[in-house]
Amino acid sequence: MASVVDHLDENESMVTPRDVKYAVLHLQAAVEVLLKARLMAEHWSLVFSDPHKATRKALDEATLSSVSTEQAVIRLRNIADVPIAEKEGRALKNLTEDRNKLQHFGLTAPAPVIEARAGEVLDFLIRFVDEELMPRLSHEERDETEEALGQLRGGLASINTFVRERTNRIRGEVTREGSENRTIRCPECEQMALVLGDTADPHGETVWATCRFCANRWNPDELLECFPADGQDEPSELNTCSQCREWLLGWGVQVLSDPEADVAFCFFCITAFPSVVPCDRCARPVDAAGPGPQLCGVCWEEGVVESRYGREDPTDYGCEAE
């Protein structure tokens, strides 16, 4: 963890591709060691990929096939009752993917993306050590760890300051441009910095949107894949925009103008639809008119017809049986 901070601290020197490479490798190593340390505290068999095949001999001789990061997170949540938020779990998963890509293909993400992700993971690990590992240390180990954590918090503050200052500058630019309604959270770096509609024709060959934090470029079809409806595998009527009728309506999008809400958003006409929800029956987009079942026109008509023949409970559709 200390090595990660050294490699990514913008106050010390410019972050180079080599710094990013070793930051990813060392951070992933830290994650694996610390998560397994907590599993060991629960029971030593939990660090085996298959606990049913756990033996003390394999553990003592370090010949075991050990648990993956993803498996470790699941076991910590379900068995050790360790609170790991979905966002934290996603950051750990992204880090594993970055490490794997680095090993096989070299550096595939821009340095700012890695720095932002590393800040999230470091923040989680420091809290994890504080709350889950420190209480299990001896007094001598605790004093030594406290000193190390103090240094890490200072380095983490530098990394987070870089990310925060860059994000604030970008938001200031977007606000001056009046682009808050078409700026969304980037699927790659997860910063609120992806400004949509940089070119006039979303079906053209030119780049349609560029993230101002990580510089990744997107077209509408690529964005649609990042924001599917629940249980959706490929574009369908679930993605039909009520305004432009294109199949480019994404779900669960966060927009800068209202960053706390997850909304439906059309990547063609660049419009957010905060009141649009999936139909309760078929999941087609429907405008939520109020309390009760939210049904599209097709399902409402089918429901009324079926209720007359007693095949369904008519009260499910807000109408009375005849």
Rank of each mutant, 00 (worst) to 15 (best):
E302K: 08
G303D: 00
G252H: 05
V277S: 00
C241S: 01
V253N: 04
T315P: 01
V255A: 13
L256A: 04
E302S: 09
C319M: 07
F265V: 06
G318M: 02
C319V: 13
L249S: 03
V277G: 00
V253K: 11
W251K: 06
N239I: 01
N239M: 02
C296E: 00
C244H: 05
L248C: 00
S257F: 12
E306N: 11
D262G: 14
E301C: 10
G250H: 01
E302L: 13
W247R: 13
F265H: 05
E246F: 00
V304P: 01
C319H: 12
V255G: 09
Q294I: 01
W300S: 14
C279E: 01
D258P: 04
C296N: 07
C296M: 12
C279M: 05
R284W: 06
F268Q: 10
S307C: 05
C299I: 08
E302T: 10
C296H: 10
P314G: 12
E306F: 12
V276K: 13
P291N: 05
V263N: 06
V263K: 08
D313A: 07
A272H: 02
V298S: 14
R245H: 10
A283P: 02
C279P: 03
W300V: 14
S275Q: 15
V255Q: 09
G292N: 05
R281N: 12
P278A: 03
C244D: 04
A289M: 06
P293Q: 02
G290F: 01
G252Y: 07
C299D: 11
G250P: 02
E306H: 15
D262V: 04
V298N: 12
S275H: 11
A288Y: 06
F267E: 07
C296P: 11
Q243N: 14
G318I: 09
Q243V: 12
C319I: 10
R245T: 15
A288E: 14
L238T: 15
D280V: 00
G310K: 09
Q243T: 15
A264N: 01
R308E: 14
R281K: 08
A289C: 10
G303S: 03
W251E: 10
A264L: 00
D316H: 13
W300H: 11
C266M: 03
D262R: 13
L256Y: 08
F265W: 07
G292C: 04
Y317C: 11
L295I: 08
E302M: 13
R281L: 03
S275V: 11
E246Y: 00
E312L: 12
D316N: 14
R245Q: 14
G303V: 01
D287I: 11
G303N: 07
Q254W: 05
D280A: 06
F273V: 08
V276A: 14
C319Q: 09
D258M: 03
A289H: 00
W247E: 05
E260V: 11
D313F: 06
A289Y: 03
D287E: 15
